[in-house]
C-alpha cells in the first residue's frame, strides 16, 4: 500500500521530538480520522534553523511529518510557507488516494508553526519581522540582511 520511500520515512523518521525553547509551534488535528500532529520550529534570521515533529497517526501521517521537516530545514519562512500538502506527498513519491488527507496535517502544522512565530515576533509580514529584528540587532543589520542564513547576532534577545 505504501511505497518504499514512505516506509523508509515511517520506520526511520527524521527530526522526531520536541525543541527546547521553540520559536513557533503548530498543532493541528485531522478532522477526517482524528490524528494529531505538532511541528516546532526554531528561526534564525528569516530561516528555519531547526524543526521537530510529534505525530499521533498512521504510517502516512508519520512519513509526511518526517518528510516535511526535511524539506523545510534551512528554508526561509516564505519558502516554507509555500510548501503545499501536494508537494509533501509528491516528495514521498506519492501516497495511496485514501491517505492523501494525512499529508494535509504535515503542511498545515508547519504553516501553523510559522503563523505562531510571526504572531509572537513581529507581525505576519516577513520583512516587518526581519526589520524589527534587524533593528534590535543594531549595527550588524546590513551584513545580516545580506546573509540571512547566518545566525543573527541579536537572535534570542527579543524572544521568550
Amino acid at each position: 500500500m505504501y511505497n518504499e520511500k514512505v516506509m523508509e520515512h515511517f520506520y526511520n523518521p527524521k527530526n522526531v521530538g520536541e525543541l527546547k525553547d521553540p520559536d513557533g509551534i503548530g498543532r493541528v488535528g485531522n478532522p477526517t480520522c482524528g490524528d494529531i500532529m505538532q511541528i516546532a520550529i526554531k528561526v534564525k534570521g528569516d530561516r528555519i534553523a531547526d524543526v521537530k515533529f510529534q505525530t499521533f497517526g498512521c504510517g502516512a501521517a508519520i512519513a509526511t511529518s518526517s518528510m516535511v521537516t526535511e524539506m523545510v530545514k534551512g528554508k526561509t519562512l516564505d519558502e516554507a510557507q509555500e510548501i503545499s500538502n501536494r508537494a509533501v506527498a509528491d516528495a514521498l513519491g506519492g501516497l495511496p488516494p485514501n491517505k492523501m488527507h494525512c499529508s494535509n496535517l504535515a503542511a498545515d502544522a508547519l504553516h501553523e508553526a510559522i503563523k505562531d512565530y510571526r504572531a509572537k515576533y513581529g507581525g505576519t509580514d516577513r520583512n516587518a519581522a526581519t526589520q524589527a529584528q534587524v533593528q534590535a540587532a543594531g549595527e550588524t543589520a546590513a551584513s545580516t540582511a545580506a546573509a540571512s542564513d547566518k545566525p543573527m547576532s541579536g537572535e534570542g534577545k527579543d524572544k521568550h
Binding site: R27, V28, G29, T32, I36, Q54, N98, M100, H101, N104
Partner: peptide
C-alpha cells in the same frame, strides 16, 4: 516517543486545543 498526546500526558497537562487542519479532502477518490 513520537506522540504529542503522550508528551502532553507525561507533562501532566491536558491536551492542547487543536486547530483543525485546512481543507478537508474527499478521501475516497
Amino acid at each position: 516517543q513520537m506522540s504529542p498526546l503522550y508528551a502532553d500526558k507525561i507533562k501532566g497537562h491536558a491536551a492542547a486545543p487543536l486547530t483543525p487542519a485546512g481543507e478537508e479532502h474527499p478521501h475516497d477518490v
